[in-house]
């Protein structure tokens, strides 16, 4: 089966992840949406690597994983800090940015 189908799969996963970010108020859930988007991108990279028959794409995916791991660490730390300060992790709560 054509590996391009995996790219299509990646697109669908990306759309689901982005919809989760837009729709969910729970910061952790939204964050998981972000993770899903990153993984969808990884899947696309690996699929393209397979299509081209090279492993550079896999290395790129590897890098994305490393960065995602770092991002998760910092992101969760921020969520915890916010939770300590506000006793909530709802994304709608901190509305100080309102103009």
């Amino acid at each position: 089966m054509d590996p391009v189908n995996f790219v299509i799969l990646a697109s669908i996963l990306f759309a689901i992840g982005s919809a989760a970010v837009l729709l969910r108020r729970n910061a952790i859930v939204a964050f998981m949406g972000v993770e899903l988007m990153l993984n969808a991108a990884n899947l696309a990279l690996v699929a393209f690597a397979r299509i081209h028959g090279e492993i550079d794409g896999q290395v790129m995916a590897f890098f994305v994983m490393v960065v995602a791991a770092a991002e998760v660490v910092v992101g969760l730390a921020i969520i915890i800090a916010v939770f300590r300060a506000r006793q909530t992790i709802s994304l709608d709560e901190p509305a100080e940015l309102k103009g």
């Binding site: 970010v21 108020r25 994304l91």
Partner: peptide
């Protein structure tokens, strides 16, 4: 008028970005 765009809702901003 432009101020209305700044709702302070993070998810609205995310929607705009998307």
């Amino acid at each position: 008028v432009a101020r209305r765009l700044q709702t302070g809702q993070v998810r609205s901003y995310a929607a705009t970005m998307l």
